[in-house]
Structures are given as structure tokens and as C-alpha cells.
Computed example of a mutant assay.
Amino acid sequence: MKAGSAGSSPDGVTNFSAATQPLRFFLGEVGEAVAYLNTIVVGLDAVENGYKKPAGLKISWNPDDQNAAARKARRFAVEATMQKVCGALKEYIATISNFKRLTVVRERWSGKTTSAEKTTDVAEFLLGEDDFLHVGACLTIHWRNRIVHKRSSAKLTAKQENRLRKQKATIKSNFASLDVDRLLDHFEKGRPTLKDISTLISFSIRFVRELDRKLNHVSKLDLDYLLDRYELTSRVEKIERETSPPKRFDSIVRLLKTEAPGLVVSYQDIMIVNVRMAD
């Protein structure tokens, strides 16, 4: 058993310390967005410093003011990145909220429950009501909504805003000297900066990592759900049908290592527990 350090319990629930597949997906999406944003920022720096369009580049580009054009493009890139990160965050919350242990949270929701409200509910259930990291994640969601829907009045609750302000010293110390008051002012004025989105990304990553640390048990039901969500159920079933029993386990593990490495430890431990129970 390669992941023996993960351990197991007799009730068929596995304990694992590696990142879950939902976290791996989230980090991949966010990492890609950040890489694109950084590349764009580097390119725009060249534009601000007098870059001339090559003759062979067949696009229409002849701004009257290159500096102004670069600043507007940077804001566009920041807003687009915010939307990408927000999408990854919403996907993570949507995925883990279907875990068995979050049933009590999920059952409170209706069709009118917003993404920010779901994020808060999950955060308070797993991390406690004093958590402030999720407030940064919620601010990202609200900011995205204001960008996409010009008439949106999405905003933090008074409780969330107060929680963020009370943590100003901690946030300034741990998030690149971020000024919370300035961040909230930029949000109200609709003026996201590169520092704003960089900080909100850091908030979201730390928040999701904290949630993931709390999700250190996954049941057989959760594993089946994740296999289905990542469109692996039919492929696992095909291996089970067409592979001899001695080779079946290793074949499925190889599939998971390629397609969803965050599920490998869960599958290994649950299968080993099932074997023990059968004996």
C-alpha cells in the first residue's frame, strides 16, 4: 500500500493528508489564471515603454495613448482573472458541499441561496464562525458579480465587513501589507487593482486549503460521487468488468493516478478496508 501513511478506520471511512481532487482542480485553475495574468502584465509593461507592433502581426492596434491603452487592458485582465478565480472557487464549494458530512449544510439551501452565502455556510460549518479568510473569498465573488452585472449591489454583510476590519493588523502582516480599508474602498468604487486581485487570490487559496484540511475523511459514498463528478465512473466500471481480479486494483489505481491523483489514496484505503471487512 503506497499511501499507507493515510491510515484507515473500521467504519469504511478513509483518512488522507494529501490534497483532495477538488483542491487540485482549484489550484490548477487558479495557477493557470495567475500565469496568464502575469504574462499579460509583462506584455503591457512593454506597451507602456513604447513597444511597437511588428509589421507581421495582422491585427488592428494603433492607440492614441499607449499608456492609457495599457492601463485599460490591465484592468480588463485583472477583472477577467477575478472571474476565472471566482469560477474555480464556486466549483470547489459546489463539489465539497455534496460530501456526506456537509448534508446538514446543503439541506438548508434553496434555489435562491447565492454562491457567497453557500461559501459562508460551508466556511462556518468547517472552520467556525470566527474565520475571516472566507470573507476575502466572498468579496471576490461579489466583485465578480459587480463586474459581470453592472446593476449588481452585491456586498459583504455588516458582520463580514466588521470581521475583516477587526483583522486589519493580521491581514496587513500576512498579505503583503494589504490595507483593508483601501481594498474595501476600491470594491465600492469598482476599481480593482493588480494588488487587489493578487491579495484576493491569496485569500481564496488559503481559505480553500483550510477547508481541505478539514476534509480529511472521505466515505465510500463521497468517493463514488467524486468519480462520477470527474466522469470516471464508467471507466472504473469498464476496468472492473474487463480486468481479472488480481490486476483490477492496480489497473484502477493507474487510471486514477493519471486522471485524478487526488482520489488515489481514498480509493486505496477504502478498498483495503472493504477487504478487511470481508475477511
Rank of each mutant, 00 (worst) to 15 (best):
K2C: 01
K2W: 07
A6D: 12
D11R: 05
V13M: 04
N15T: 15
F16N: 02
A19Y: 00
A19W: 04
Q21M: 09
F25I: 15
G28Q: 06
A33H: 02
T39M: 06
V41F: 07
V41A: 05
V42D: 03
L44V: 13
D45V: 13
A46G: 00
G50P: 04
K58D: 14
S60T: 11
S60E: 07
N62Q: 13
A68N: 07
R74T: 13
F76I: 15
A80E: 09
M82V: 02
C86V: 05
A88H: 04
L89C: 03
K90T: 09
A94F: 09
N98M: 12
T103I: 10
T103C: 12
T103M: 14
V105W: 11
V105T: 13
K112Q: 09
A116Y: 00
D121F: 00
E124W: 03
F125Q: 10
F125H: 12
L127G: 10
V135P: 00
G136D: 06
I147L: 10
V148G: 03
H149Q: 10
S153G: 13
K155Y: 01
L156I: 09
A158V: 14
A158N: 11
L164D: 05
R165I: 12
K166T: 00
T170R: 14
K172G: 14
N174D: 15
F175M: 11
A176E: 15
S177F: 14
D179R: 06
D179Y: 07
F187N: 02
P192V: 05
T193P: 05
I201S: 01
F207Q: 03
E210H: 09
E210A: 15
L211A: 04
D212S: 15
R213M: 10
R213C: 11
K214Y: 09
V218N: 04
D224M: 09
D224R: 12
Y225I: 09
L227K: 09
R229K: 15
R229G: 01
Y230H: 11
S244G: 08
P245Q: 11
F249C: 02
F249Q: 07
I252Q: 03
L255N: 05
L255S: 08
A260F: 06
S266M: 08
I270A: 10
M271Q: 14
V275Y: 12
M277W: 08
M277F: 08
A278R: 13
